[in-house]
Nucleic acid binder design. Structure first.
Length: 576
RNA sequence: GGACGGGUAGCUCAGUCGGUAGAGCAUCGGACUUUUAAUCCGGUGGUCGUGGGUUCGAUCCCCACCCCGUUCACCA
């Protein structure tokens, strides 16, 4: 290492002055502080001969050292640097915090005994109100707490708004009611502080439900302001990276996530009622399986071997059906090392279920029932808006075979042929851009997503998919070219995938082998052969139907969200 | 990875056909006892994403890079 640094120094010193740029001189310092990427970037631009190569070697060495040090990703710098105004704003609040301490108060309390949350308080007042009269209007005594979200000081009286998870309520404090000392201490409050108040809930002359406080208590001093009051926080990068700021500034975000939480909750409720058992299967897979997708690789130190983060729980869940559970499900994360866009996050949540003695048609009924149950519970009816379209979820949903759908929407018949070249020509004839290297199955898939999917605004089941696309599904009972598989679509999005599970171990081995052949031909998404899984099928899996549902997509649909990042609390962004 | 758009005060945004920047809100000081985007008066606050280049001079023009969004490719 020292030697490499020496070489770099030498190269810089020996170079012609005109070739040395200002940033070249920074190289060593950057390397010493392990700013590897930056140093590399400078070396790329440098005009000093040979320097680039030396720096590259050097950064490689440092990279290895960093990897070793990284083990538990070490915490970042102690305090995020604030500059200019931000630092001033914080300092003002720190000063106020000190003043609170100086008068013997604690700006970070331990608890506050509330009589109601704010939502309950409003309900309680509205319930009591009709009993009041002109002379003695209703009032409800209460102790409430919340975050201060607005503050309107009048000089000798003030109005403020406090908010908790369940609502917002106005607060009134008058100089006479609270006394001079308390009133003066209001100076040390800021938007964002948590306070507790005690008083009577009444209506003001202007009709606003208001707690007339006899006093207040600071519960938590906020040292950092959240966002502007009526434009909220709009910068999407900040919204995703600092979700807490998004939630504080944009309360509707809480509602979006509550709906997402309900999706999972109602789904679990429905499944348990049907007798499904919730299980947990490994996230670390020695062989990634259950889906055609590129996996993340990770490493176990003691075993000294690589594992894959799971791309799907499918093969483990089916082993449980082999083992003797009849109805199981799992709601959990999957990880796929692929593109990121408005519908894809590297980690996402799925529900997978498996039901013994059932086939795909029976499962289609169940799926329709479950999804309508969840959606109706959340949207409060059978129809809702998604991105400008009215979606009607009333049963029964439309059902079409994949080939019928292609005939209807693309105007070509891909079922008439099994020939790859003919399929390519047919696809091209309707303007679908296909690559001659694609297999027949891929071509069908391409035509489907290009020509059919955009029409599937209303809930629709497509079923009977080409065998090439579905290495884990049973062949259709009367047509060997197809599998017994279906996908539900809502608002043009695939929200799930299901099939009669392939339980013939001989057939399964052949399907895996053709996947392995694809893999060897360079398709790095093709599936691996899982010997133990085949062994389990040889022990015997009853006829089984299985279903996977994309929870994030379902959440997008019921929350009218255009991007998956709106329904994932902490979506994956590049680390800066 | 490609194409397009974006990054200016704590927040939301304007702007400079190249002469080192503005508004509203927030903040600070003052006035105000029924406001609710409170109001009125005065002030503070910016390495204009980062690094180079061109230029007497760059936030603006050119190049590279970083980050975000949309979209295409791959996928759920």
């Amino acid at each position: 290492m020292e030697k490499l640094f020496g070489t770099i120094k030498e190269q810089i010193e020996k170079a012609d002055d005109e070739k040395i740029s200002v940033e070249d001189r920074d190289l060593l310092r950057l390397l010493e502080t392990k700013a590897v990427d930056e140093a590399l970037a400078i070396a790329e631009r440098s005009r000093i001969p040979g320097l680039k190569k030396t720096v590259k070697v050097c950064t490689k060495v440092i990279g290895k050292v960093l990897d070793l040090e990284a083990q538990p990703p070490s915490g970042q710098a102690a305090e995020e640097e604030l500059s200019g105004t931000a630092a001033d704003l914080r300092q003002h609040r720190v000063d106020k915090m000190e003043r609170i301490r100086e008068r013997g108060d604690n700006p970070f309390k331990f608890a506050f005994d509330r009589s109601h949350n704010i939502g309950e308080a409003r309900v309680a007042f509205e319930a009591a109100e009709p009993a009041g009269t002109e002379e003695s209007p209703a009032e409800v005594p209460a102790r409430l707490a919340g975050r201060l979200v607005a503050f309107r000081n009048q000089g000798k009286s003030c109005f403020a708004d406090i908010r908790d998870e369940f609502g917002r309520i106005q607060l009134f404090m008058g100089l006479k009611q609270v006394g001079e000392d308390v009133f003066a201490s209001l100076k040390d409050l800021d938007i964002g502080d948590f306070i507790g108040v005690e008083g009577a809930i009444k209506r003001t002359r202007r009709g606003e439900i208001t707690i007339f406080a006899t006093g207040y208590e600071i519960l938590t001093k906020s040292l950092r302001p959240a966002a502007e009051k009526h434009h909220g926080l709009k910068d999407v990068e900040t919204r995703y990276r600092k979700r807490y700021l998004d939630m504080v500034a944009n309360p509707e975000v809480l509602e979006t996530f509550k709906k997402r939480i309900q999706v999972v909750s109602y789904m679990r409720q429905w499944l348990e009622k049907q007798g499904y058992l919730e299980v947990e299967t490994p996230m670390l897979h020695p062989i990634p399986g259950g889906a055609t997708a590129r996996p993340f690789i990770t490493h176990h130190n003691t075993y000294d071997r690589d594992f894959y983060l799971r791309v799907a729980p499918e093969l483990y869940l089916k082993r449980l059906i082999v083992g003797g559970f009849d109805k199981v499900f799992e709601i959990n994360r999957c990880f796929r090392n692929e593109g990121v866009d408005t519908r894809h996050n590297p980690e996402f949540t799925t529900m997978e279920l498996y039901e013994a003695y059932q086939d795909y048609m029976g499962l289609m009924e169940e799926t329709e029932e479950m999804l309508t149950y969840i959606i109706e519970k959340i949207v409060g009816g059978t129809s809702f808006e998604y991105q400008g379209n009215t979606i009607e979820v009333k049963r029964p949903w439309k059902r079409m075979t994949l080939h019928d759908a292609i005939r209807e929407y693309a105007g070509i018949d891909l079922e008439a042929t099994r020939d790859r070249d003919e399929a390519v020509n047919l696809a091209k004839s309707v303007g679908v851009d296909v690559d001659p290297s694609m297999g027949y199955g891929k071509i069908v898939d391409e035509v489907m997503s290009d020509k059919v999917q955009p029409h599937l605004i209303q809930p629709t089941f497509l079923y009977d998919y080409p065998i090439e696309l579905s290495p884990l599904a049973k062949k259709k009972r009367d047509n060997e070219a197809l599998t017994e598989r279906f996908q539900p679509f809502i608002a043009c999005m695939e929200v799930g995938n299901a099939f009669s599970e392939l339980n013939d171990p001989i057939d399964q081995r052949e399907r895996f082998e053709s996947q392995v052949a694809l893999r060897e031909a360079g398709d790095d998404e093709a599936q691996f052969l899982d010997e133990d899984f085949i062994a389990s099928l040889e022990v015997g899996m009853p006829p089984t139907a299985g279903l996977g549902i994309g929870i994030d997509r379902l959440a997008m649909i019921v929350t009218d969200s255009a991007s998956i990042r709106e329904v994932i609390l902490f979506p994956q962004l590049r680390t800066v």
